[in-house]
Amino acid sequence: MKFLNKIIFFYYREYKLNLSGFQDILTNIIFFFVSILIFIFSIGPDKEVISLIGVGMIWTLLLLSSTLSLRKFYQDDYENGNLLIIHLNGFSFGFIAILKTFSHFLFVQVPFLLSIPIACILLNIANDKLFYLFASFSIGSLILSCLGSISSSMNLMNQRNFLLGSVIVMIFSVPVIIFSVGIINMEESFNSLINILFGILLIVFAINPWASGLCLKLSLENN
């Protein structure tokens, strides 16, 4: 019970923290829409072409804009010592990674999830595809959060070259993109592809606490 309360109040803290910095999250979403704008201008406003490549475009831009906020993932808590305090409050590093991953999913990816319908309207994507986009992104974004946790914890001590973190996430998200966009283009094999996505989610979910926890411990140790 005590442990459960601690988890609940951890999220209370995350909520307060994200509420005070909600403009950061909003900036991510604005980046997403502005890049859609840029994309449309660069390929011309031809409706047919846009609805053809729209889904892939939305996925690419979602990936890019969600990697923008990666730096915030652990960096703030690490630099002001809160990570250590949370650890001393009774969470192992692996568990902190899991909690933080869900927090990233809730406060960064869910706003993107909510902005997908608007993007679909802007890009003339058929309504029946919206469901597939939703389903694939709700699983895919959780995978992205796990990958983000791994890469940003790896780069905590890396002061010189943080872009590396984004590159790591993008490299490992290649299969996610393949299968998620595959779902939307091949609706008849929805079940099998969504199962593959689930499988990838379980794999990264299993790796995440180990890899991130180890990296967090290392960074705190050598701070």
């Binding site: 791994i150 790896m154 001590m157 002061q159 070259n161 590396l164 890899a211 990296c215 960074s219």
Partner: peptide, 21 residues
């Protein structure tokens, strides 16, 4: 990664984790 970390201990372990992943 090998080039951009200041601290050797962190660097080599992080790189090893990355290789495994």
């Amino acid at each position: 990664m090998n080039l951009s970390f200041e601290n050797r201990i962190v660097r080599e372990k992080v790189v090893a984790i990355f290789i495994l992943v």
